[in-house]
Design a protein around this nucleic acid. Structure first.
Lengths: 239, 239
DNA sequence: TTCAGCTATTATGTATCCCAAAATCATAAA
DNA sequence: TTTATGATTTTGGGATACATAATAGCTGAA
């Protein structure tokens, strides 16, 4: 593993865990001391994490940990939903290959099976994996590198990912119901794409992203649930 | 001006002018020789230009000039339109301040005056400036940093900018008609936002971006018009 | 006591050097 | 003639030394 990658991973962990607080300025030398790598990979990591959205450049030079408001999380989810809606519409309009449709239907079936089981031991990680795979396949079906790239960037924010809220969701009593609704949306989107119904596919994908909105509200209300949301350490009320 | 910035500007110019051809691998040392700066700012510039989308990272290390297809331009425009549509909807739903509405209406009036004049000497640069300002104000009215950032990134691709096609458009016989339509869309979007009509504002902004689609088709047909489109040097048929 | 200005320190920006890995080319063997 | 292997060269990643700009702290004067 390269020193740069090691530094990126370490810094990201420090930021997401809240050890480095929002607004805190990151001096290159302090990171050098902390992580034991030289300034070159540190600088590389700082640039990459700014691109990712976790850091912001200070006008006079250097970087600080970025802070977000609750509204920012909302907007990030809405942005992802909008872009995934675009991807779904493009997929529907352009008509994906039978192979792609087969793949995503196989993914749907696996999710069905997983959901049928009452929540077992590692059901959660399995769900996260399959859910991410579904979203990935959908993006691929759009057939657009440009859109795919844009979604990648939108999802880079930790709380914007399609599975950012599965952990909090699992804590809720209505958890299972939400899962069923989400899966119904998955199924309907695929159906819409198959039938070349672009507007429907887009609307469904947008609405699908809004289960995250609901989970967000839940997470904000229940004090214990907050730390289950990745990146929650970056949230400041007044930001 | 810093060496890094100088390198970024020089490299971008070399890429957009087509002097560095799509697919061409960029060796750090060759750039050092070419531009007379050391490797450090060169490396920094390469990272930033990859982020911008002009370069792509090679798995084994290093960077190559990215190439795009005509479909990619189409998708980039559609992506921008979708995100600007999101911004317009958010602006409408949230209700911008009277000051913001005043600002964008002032911008509209200036555009009106400019369009009324028969095409004068520097009407074009004036139009580009006001047009960009309009789009900027609209983004600001959304009230969302997250959305603003995402649009910034989408617009970084040279042919995705709101004013990427004004030069080709100016060559067309129906140029004036297109301008009038675009301005009507500007006006309608502001009206929709004022009336808190989110769906209308979004649809209008999307449709507005599609004047670029039309101009793109024109540019691709007329051989002389191609080089008026920024970034056209990056287009490969089969990409 | 407060503010201005200077200085010292620390931070980032830049250049250069070293090293490891990968691509390439040449040569030899099948 | 083709393929495999080894040497050479090139390239990129990393470390460090140097230059320059920013900042904080201190001193002196109002």
């Amino acid at each position: 593993m390269s020193q740069s990658l090691k530094t990126i991973l370490s810094l990201r962990e420090l930021i997401l865990s809240g050890e480095l607080k929002p607004g805190e300025r990151l001096s290159e030398l302090s990171i050098v001391d902390r992580l034991g790598v030289s300034r070159t990979p540190v600088r590389m990591a700082l640039v990459r994490l700014e691109e990712e959205g976790l850091l912001e450049a200070i006008p006079s030079g250097g970087y600080a940990v970025r802070h977000f408001s609750e509204a920012d999380i909302f907007d990030a989810i809405e942005t992802r939903g909008t872009l995934e809606g675009l991807a779904a519409r493009l997929a529907a309009e352009r008509g994906p290959s039978p192979g792609q449709i087969g793949e995503i239907k196989a993914c749907l079936r696996k999710l069905d099976i997983l959901i049928q089981d009452e929540h077992g031991a590692d059901t959660l990680t399995g769900y996260v994996e399959l859910n991410e795979q579904f979203h990935q396949l959908l993006i691929h079906m759009s057939g657009s590198r440009v859109v795919a790239r844009q979604i990648e960037r939108a999802v880079a924010l930790p709380f914007a990912s399609p599975s950012a809220f599965v952990e909090v969701q699992a804590m809720l009593p209505e958890s299972r119901a939400i899962l069923l609704v989400a899966q119904e949306q998955h199924r309907s989107v695929v159906e819409a794409i198959e039938r070349r119904e672009g507007a429907r596919a887009e609307a469904l994908m947008r609405e699908h992203s809004r289960v995250a909105h609901r989970n967000l509200v839940m997470a904000l209300d229940h004090q214990g649930a907050r730390e289950l949301v990745p990146g929650m350490a970056l949230i400041r009320q007044s930001a």
